[in-house]
Amino acid sequence: MSGRTKLTYVESKLFLRDPTAVFFVIALPIMLLAIFHFVTTKSDDDAATKASMAAFVPAMAMSLCLTMLALNLLPTTLATYREKGILRRMAASPIHPGNLLLAQLFINLVTAAVSAVLVLIVGKTAFDTKLPGDVPAFLVSFVLGTWALFSIGLVIAAVAPSSKSATAMGLSLLFPSLFFGGAFLPKEDLPETVSTIGDYTRWAPRSRRCATPGRTSGRRRCT
């Protein structure tokens, strides 16, 4: 196995050994699906609201996981690697430490994709959520949204002087971006001012529920 392949393999193993990462990527989205499924089935909302929730919940679970990875886990890991001299140690070997950053980015992107697929499949089979109606539009917005969020994560990793400040910077962007983006409440239910701010904080994961229950393509993510 070449040095770069081996590095990606070992970094993946290290990633899976971290219980927080596995929790945010696998357990949290599934828990959200389950909780919202429970809340929705118990409530006496009309069928239209229930249907729109079924479209909104997977988008929210996916956004939350993606934002966690991009704004929290990735920058903290990279800043720790720099702070502890792990990158420097690698610079003393024939392999450039940039390979370690690429390996981490790759692992996080794969994890984001796995988590998204998991949300769609588990949501559909276990909790009767909606699959994206317009698949190409979903894919394009997922890729662009992921790209935008990870770009911000990498900027944090580059400028944060320590792992603690990377976590602080990541979280201070994460929660507002979730809030303004409509991950906690659908965009349509937010006050107009908040919703307008959300239109400008373009990195925010945007979740919109469909207005008409019949239209399954109502769930969209913008960047």
Partner: peptide
């Protein structure tokens, strides 16, 4: 880089990396 072995004053490995993993990994470099 191929023929100089360096132990730096301050550098660590990822805390969850095992001894054999570190040596096997670096040997592939």
């Amino acid at each position: 880089r191929e023929s100089i072995g360096i132990q730096l004053q301050q550098s660590e490995l990822p805390p969850k990396m095992k001894v054999w993993e570190a040596l096997e990994l670096y040997s592939t470099f």
